[in-house]
């Protein structure tokens, strides 16, 4: 059993020329958490997801605190909307490097990569580096566990 057997094949992606608004629209429309950003040959050049856009509303300064229990209300942050200028920016301005896995990869190997890089979804590529699927921690985890029962 390898990652090819549990990945989602119907994978949504955006071209490197897409804007932030287009990427966010696709995330909302398809109710997904991560979008691979692909070049003209359908090869992943990066990824963008919920966390890359939600950081507009929740700045990284929040990571400075161990404990947020004392914040009863997030006030202005709850009403934050990005400006049109931010939404019009190219998605490549906000993408992270793509950590991909080959479709022949073993399940535990792929899962350990996700733990190591703090990923919840990971694009899967073929021998030409082209995007063929996407696998989540749940996809991989339940496939491993299914063998145990």
């Amino acid at each position: 059993m390898n990652i090819h057997d549990c990945m989602k094949i119907n994978v949504f992606s955006v071209p490197a020329t897409a804007t932030v608004r287009e990427a966010i629209s696709l995330l909302v429309l398809k109710h997904i958490g991560l979008l691979p950003v692909v070049d003209g040959n359908h090869r992943p050049v990066g990824v963008v997801g919920l966390r890359d856009f939600l950081k507009f509303a929740l700045p990284s300064s929040f990571s400075l605190q161990d404990d947020l229990d004392f914040l009863g209300d997030f006030g202005a942050l709850e009403h934050y909307r990005p400006t049109d200028a931010i939404l019009a920016k190219p998605v490549t301005d906000f993408m992270r490097p793509a950590t991909t896995v080959h479709e022949d990869s073993g399940l535990l190997r792929a899962y350990s990569f996700m733990l190591l890089h703090d990923l919840h979804d990971m694009p899967v590529v073929d021998e030409h580096g082209q995007l063929t699927g996407i696998a989540s921690r749940v996809d991989i985890g339940v496939t491993i566990l299914a063998d145990w029962v």
Binding site: P59, S61, F62, L64, Q65, L68, L71, D73, F74, G75, A76, L77, H79
Partner: peptide, 15 residues
């Protein structure tokens, strides 16, 4: 300072 930043974010003002 980190709490100051949080307070400013919640208020919606510059820290």
């Amino acid at each position: 300072a980190p709490v100051t930043i949080l307070i400013s974010e919640v208020l919606g003002t510059s820290a």
